[in-house]
Amino acid sequence: MTRTVWVKADDSVGDWEARKRRITTAIEAGADWVLVDEDDVGRVRDLGAIDVAAFLSDADVVDGGGETAEADATFVGKGGEGDGSIDLPDDFTGSADLTTLRRRDDRAQGAYVRVLGTEYEAFAESAAAAADITVVIGEDWSIIPLENLIARVGDETHLVAGATTAAEARTAFETLELGADGVLLDTDSPEEIRGAVEARDAAERESLELTTATVTAVEATGMADRVCIDTGSLMDDAEGMLVGSLSRGLFFVHAETAESPYVESRPFRVNAGAVHAYVRNPEGGTNYLAELSSGDEVQVVDRDGGTREAIVGRVKIEKRPMFRIQAEVTTDDGVDRVETLIQNAETVKVATDEGRTAVTDLETGDEVVVYYEDVARHFGEAVEESIIEK
């Protein structure tokens, strides 16, 4: 599921300067969409790159539809049944379509509904059956209506829940464990918008089950082309990347956050290994180290298995003396061997059961942290076929 953060910036926010501040904040915070009035679409385009959704204007409805909006998605519901400006029919039976929300206009992909009561919950559910995107705004409600809508229409539409704080956004993403597909922030606070973006990112991240492997060999192997991954993010002492010669078993290699008498720390860097090795990416696949280049994404992992993504800023490939590290993982089927090539340097550290150890101090019998999955890979994707790696 792709989670999204939307920021509401229509005329209910205030004049253009007030709306502009929200839109600029949304762009700078990394939000995915802004929801504006149709007349503002062009001005949003001038401010920066972000997807733009627009409420269809009253004039277009009265005239039976005007020129196609320049927005990436158009919405109905404002100024009509969706926001309570027009009462629901007394004989409403739970059947609605997008033209009910805004008459005589069939351009809309999205529905906007304020849940003012149980009948509006049914109205939102019915509208969602016809809408690619459905925004629901709770009024004096907590979780139950959102739970109902996730359960009933979660597969039919991109469900976006209204929120005013990052905490509400986080709850929306976690509701029923599945969570809403997106949140629409109605706030002027840059901190709340950034917090919602962080909640989106956290909801999309994997949590990996790391294990340990027993080192069976540490051998000097001579020179090889070694890859340093320099990212556009700072990593902390508990973070690194998963790297290995065999796709089924990747070693936890720490970022260069530790101080050394020989070189300064490089908390943006992981000295990952030889060019042939794999590194795990945020999609759960792998890339060869030699394939990485500026702008690619790699997965950063911490000792608890928490993950996040980082953008590659630079890749440094240089000839360096290497170690071959071999270890054994205990599996349900017995013992499996994993290994990697890594630079022979005291600044390169791998995670162990006792913390982290420089590869130059690593010994047979040490327990190193690895990510093990008994699958084969083809072009970095897990496949069900027999592949022998040795």
Rank of each mutant, 00 (worst) to 15 (best):
I137K: 07
E291A: 11
E283R: 12
Y278K: 12
T24P: 03
E264F: 06
I317D: 04
D10Y: 00
I317Q: 09
R102M: 13
V279D: 03
I86E: 04
E17P: 00
N148L: 12
E318G: 01
I86K: 03
G79K: 10
T360Q: 10
G48Y: 12
E339K: 05
D83S: 05
L292H: 01
P261R: 12
A277R: 02
A202V: 03
N281C: 12
R308Q: 05
L234H: 14
L184K: 08
R248V: 05
E239C: 10
E389W: 00
I133K: 02
L210T: 01
I150K: 00
E209D: 14
R308M: 04
N287E: 09
A238Q: 14
E204W: 09
L116H: 09
G295W: 02
T352G: 05
G82T: 06
E239M: 14
E156H: 12
I317W: 03
M235C: 15
V300S: 08
D37N: 15
E204S: 09
V315P: 01
I317R: 12
A351E: 02
F251T: 14
G79F: 11
S265V: 01
Y120P: 07
W33P: 10
A71Q: 06
V13C: 08
R303C: 04
D236F: 13
I325K: 01
G355V: 12
V298F: 08
L210D: 05
L208M: 08
G284F: 07
A124E: 09
T360E: 15
